[in-house]
């Protein structure tokens, strides 16, 4: 059976809908020892800012049931080194689009690069996005708005609809690539934030970032993380993520990249059926470097078994609203 697994995200074609979640996959170089990155729909790189960031003190992580808390604090080497080293690596590693379309006779898209961007102020986001404008290897930008906004006293950019609309349109104006806004789940009504991003001109949405949590070490009677709180990720958050993707798919028209606890093809298909056009694998790659590949193969196997000729038939197929 000929199957189409390729999807369109914000005008960019992916060979399949599976990518890696920012911050869990480095620049891809670390994982390239374990599998061929060219099998992925896209590589999403660790958050990068206009200048290097030190991140938080350690311990930065702890394990929780079926998940983990992290407070890395967005440590990164800054956009200049990122461009020179990490994007160079990716452009050397990822093959160009090939004519050998998988049975379809068309073009098989290459693995794309999505660059995740963070900042402490609007100016920092803009500065970073402008420095990436001339990078041909950055196919799409993913803007992490869960960063602390220094001007607003450390409150994340992503929790106030007006702020989200403003930062989205500012980034949209500065960016040369399509812009995906990455939403924080730590809000009362995520559809409000999704609509604000759409109104600001976002080309797509990524969701969800981590859920704020805390762990206490009872033996030491202290916080498990130096930062006290951290972001919960992994299979523990998957049902929350599916619910939020579902809600937002009914609220906006732009494509959604779904993530949060995906470990198996079944988890990914849930996300797709809830309305995601593509998915990211994050924490599960820590348990097995090749998780994203198993998800791709599992989706392929599902399509075969259920005679699905085009993955897009499944996107948002479970719904209760009118189209």
């Amino acid at each position: 059976m000929t199957k189409n697994m390729s999807v369109d995200i914000c005008g960019v074609r992916l060979k399949n809908p599976v990518m890696t979640a920012s911050g869990t996959f480095g620049s891809g170089a670390e994982f390239s020892e374990f599998f061929d990155l060219n099998r992925l729909g896209a590589v999403v790189t660790k958050g990068v800012s206009s200048v290097p960031w030190e991140g938080n003190p350690t311990p930065r992580i702890c394990e929780t049931p079926s998940g983990m808390l992290n407070a890395i604090g967005l440590q990164n080497a800054g956009v200049e080194v990122f461009s020179k080293r990490d994007l160079r690596f990716l452009s050397d590693t990822l093959l160009p689009d090939s004519g050998a379309g998988a049975g379809s006779g068309g073009i098989l898209p290459s693995t794309k690069v999505i660059v995740n961007v963070c900042g402490h102020s609007e100016e920092e986001y803009i500065d970073c996005v402008e420095k990436l404008a001339s990078e041909r290897r950055a196919d799409l930008l993913e803007i992490n708005i869960s960063c602390p906004n220094v001007k607003e006293g450390g409150i994340a950019f992503g929790t106030d609809p007006k702020g989200v609309e403003r930062i989205t349109s500012a980034v949209r104006r500065a960016a040369r690539q399509p812009v995906i806004m990455k939403l924080s789940p730590n809000v009362t009504d995520i559809t409000e934030i999704a609509r604000a991003a759409e109104a600001g001109g976002a080309d797509g949405l990524s969701m969800i970032n981590t859920l704020t949590g805390m762990k206490i070490d009872v033996e030491r009677r202290s916080f498990a993380l130096a930062n006290r709180t951290g972001g919960l990720s992994g299979p523990a958050i998957h049902p929350v993520a599916v619910r939020m993707v579902y809600q937002c798919a009914g609220a906006v028209k732009i494509p959604i990249i779904g993530m949060g606890g995906i470990r198996t093809a079944e988890d990914a298909l849930e996300m797709i059926m809830a309305g995601a056009s593509a998915v990211s694998v994050g924490t599960a790659s820590f348990n097995d470097q090749r998780t994203a590949l198993a998800v791709i193969d599992g989706i392929d196997e599902y399509m075969e078994r259920h005679h699905v000729s085009d993955i897009r038939e499944l996107t948002g197929c479970v719904r209760d609203w009118e189209t």
Partner: peptide, 16 residues
Amino acid sequence: EEKMACGIGACLSCVC
């Protein structure tokens, strides 16, 4: 010694 998540240099959990 530090807490690790990926063990391969990708996640920046384990810094000193």
